[in-house]
């Protein structure tokens, strides 16, 4: 059964000048952990706001947990949990008061669904009398997740839950999501971090309001058409410039420690032997073939899309 169906949804702002979503369609199975991956401004939050009945789409339709977002919005509001990207709990209420409040407005009690949040809440318990505004970033996220879960929603919407959270807390957060998945909750999560894509079961890559690709992270990376090389040298910025000047290099992008490069079709030479770097003498060059990551695929799809679009 599909818990979430989005059909040709479009939304624009400022009288059509800003297109936030263009003809977006996808569906999510019950109990699936589905990721919406895209940079800032791709339309992720707009999509979430439409699905949580906070915003009306210009065109298209969507159903959440079997209810239409426009006709049955009341049913949806009873059955979904939403954690906005911005921390939006009551900062002047304590941890416990926030939790009790959100339980009560959903007509339930903390005790009733305590099992669901127990793993997360035990970490918050020592601070339960602290005001929410005085918590650390990671703790705030945990509390927000607890509050979004306290009524045992069928579908959980997490809008950039790991943005601005440290690496350890991010890892913990994804562990928690995996446990929630086991409880049968459908989770839609958005993130601008490509490395988190692999933690989802399926992902949709989104850019400028358009979905570029929907598949499992593995299938997406397998579909990367070219061979990839990781290159590094002592002068990385000059290296990138020189690589981009070379006519045999199709794309060159900086990925942390290395530059990832792919070659134009028909370039069959051994890259190690070819003169890739121009006249500049680069020292300590190291090169190795690598498998494509989601980010490589994203950049590839993005540039392909732009070529098609033009």
């Amino acid at each position: 059964m599909q818990d979430l169906i989005v059909n040709n949804v479009s939304k624009s702002f400022n009288k059509g000048k800003v297109k936030a979503l263009v003809d977006v369609s996808f569906s999510v199975e019950k109990g699936e952990l589905f990721g919406i991956i895209g940079p800032d401004g791709a339309g992720k939050t707009t999509l979430f706001r439409i699905l949580t009945t906070l915003l009306l789409a210009d065109e298209g339709m969507a159903t959440v947990n079997g209810s239409d977002v426009i006709i049955d919005y009341k049913a949806i509001r009873n059955n979904v949990g939403y954690m906005p990207g911005k921390f939006s709990l009551y900062q002047d209420l304590t941890v416990e008061e926030n939790l009790v409040f959100f339980a009560s407005i959903f007509n339930t009690t903390v005790e009733e669904n305590y099992k669901l949040i127990e793993d997360i809440y035990v970490q918050l318990e020592p601070f339960k009398n602290r005001r929410a505004g005085k918590l650390s970033g990671g703790m705030k996220q945990k509390l927000a997740l607890c509050c979004a879960l306290i009524h045992r929603p069928a579908v959980l919407f997490l809008d950039e839950p790991t943005t601005g959270v440290d690496a350890v807390s991010r890892k913990e957060f994804w562990e928690m999501l995996k446990r929630l998945k086991k409880e049968g909750i459908t989770i839609l999560v958005s993130t601008p971090y490509m490395d988190e894509a692999n933690l989802c079961e399926r992902i949709a890559l989104i850019q400028k309001g358009e979905i570029l690709s929907i598949d499992t992270p593995n299938n997406i990376t397998e579909q990367y058409p070219d061979k990839l090389l990781a290159v590094k040298s002592d002068n990385m910025s000059l290296l990138l410039k020189d690589l981009r000047k070379n006519e045999n290099v199709k794309s060159a992008f900086s990925f942390g420690e290395y530059h990832h490069i792919s070659f134009v079709d028909g370039f069959k030479n051994d890259p190690m032997q070819s003169d890739l770097f121009g006249a500049n003498n680069h020292t300590n060059i190291s090169m190795k073939p690598i498998a494509a990551t989601v980010e490589d695929c994203f950049i590839h799809l993005m540039s392909k899309h732009e070529v098609n679009g033009n």
Binding site: L54, K74, R77, Y82, P84, S88, F102
Partner: peptide, 13 residues
């Protein structure tokens, strides 16, 4: 401004 109204709006209140 704080955004808490969003949380309230996505509830049966």
């Amino acid at each position: 401004e704080i955004g808490t109204i969003e949380q309230i709006n996505v509830s049966p209140i």
